[in-house]
Structures are given as C-alpha cells and as structure tokens.
C-alpha cells in the first residue's frame, strides 16, 4: 500500500472539504483529494484551520508533468494529530500553467513554489517573489517538463525498457536470487546498465 501510515483517506477529506466549501473538490481517491485549481488557497486555508484536519504544516509541494497537464501535489500534515493529507490540483494549461500560490497560507511554500516554477514552469499567482531558484534568469525552458529537450518520434523521456532486459521471460526477471549483477552482461555495448558498475 503506497499510502503513508498516517495518511488520511482522500474520500473522507473530500466529504468534509466539499461540505465546507462547495465546489472545491473535483475528485477524490483513496490516497488524495483533488481540488479546483483556482480555489487551492481556500482549500488549503480551510484544511489548515479546520479542527478535524489541522493541516498546520505544508510538508512538501511539488508538481508532476503528465504531458497534457500538470499535477501540483501538496503534502500537508498535522503535527498535533499526526496525520497526513495529500491534496492535488490539476493545471490544465500545459503551455502557460498558472496556479494560486500557497504562500499566503503556508510560508514554507516560498522556496518550494519557486523551485516548481523554475523546473516546471508553473507560475504561482500572488507569490511574493516569483523568480527562478536554481537556474539563471534567461535559461531556456523548464527542465523537469517532459518535453524539455524533447525526444522525437512520439517517444517520451524515461526508461521504457531496461537495456538487456529479457522481456519475454517475466518469470525469470522477477525470480528473486536469480538476478545478481553478475548475471547482467557487462559488455552490452554502451548500455545504461553497465553505467552503474
């Protein structure tokens, strides 16, 4: 189960959040709750101030490029109740993405949003200091986007197939103890597997 030990059920959060702020929740799953992008601030503020969730701290803020849209992920946590809330916001515009900033709610979003802007290109409105964080001003593009230095022919970055992997024999692959590093052919010309020796 990939959810954390103290992570709250997304459906439960969605029910409460939806009741308090109608129209905010757009979707909910076991693990997270998805909110309307333009009302992220309201949702976060409500979660922070609510007695039940008490999401006092923004633990992590990041974004995932889903080719057609961005997912901005907020990992909130309540220290007193020791529970975690995962909120997501979908930014549909892949060309010029923008989202309200979480900074008015959580000061800890200051640098994390700058990082997301720098690497993903998502602009956060009302962020006090929306500049690049790591890369220099004028760096072309946002490197964590999947289309950065895009690979042609409809392919995407990411290892689709492990080099030298015997796809035909799935059993052998998953057989524990059978796959040690000696099994891997080292001399497979320029393969990525041999890069890690």
């Amino acid at each position: 189960m990939p959810a954390g030990p103290h992570q709250l059920d997304g459906h439960r959060i969605a029910a409460r959040l939806g009741a308090a702020l109608p129209g905010v929740v757009t979707r909910a799953t076991q693990e997270w709750v998805e909110v309307a992008p333009e009302r992220v601030q309201d949702a976060l503020r409500w979660l922070r101030d609510s007695e039940e969730f008490d999401a006092a701290q923004l633990s992590n803020l990041t974004a995932v490029d889903r080719h057609t849209h961005f997912e901005v992920v907020y990992h909130l946590q309540s220290l007193d109740l020791n529970q975690q809330v995962v909120v997501k916001a979908i930014v549909a515009d892949h060309e010029a993405p923008s989202l309200p900033s979480a900074y008015p709610v959580y000061k800890g979003a200051l640098l994390q949003e700058r990082e997301v802007y720098d690497l993903m290109g998502i602009r956060f409105a009302d962020h006090p200091d929306m500049r690049r964080l790591f890369l220099w001003e004028g760096f072309p593009g946002h490197p964590l986007r999947k289309d950065f230095l895009g690979i042609g022919h409809g392919q995407t970055s990411g290892l689709q197939r492990f080099p030298n992997e015997d796809l035909a024999n799935r059993d052998r692959m998953m057989n524990a103890g059978n796959l040690t590093s000696q099994d891997m052919p080292r001399e497979a010309g320029g393969s990525m597997a041999s890069g890690g020796h």
Partner: peptide, 11 residues
C-alpha cells in the same frame, strides 16, 4: 527539554 511525546503547536 527531553520529551517522549509527539505533537505540534499544542504539544
């Protein structure tokens, strides 16, 4: 202060 508990602002 040494403590065994866990918590946030209230703690």
């Amino acid at each position: 202060i040494m403590t065994n508990g866990v918590g946030g602002l209230r703690a």
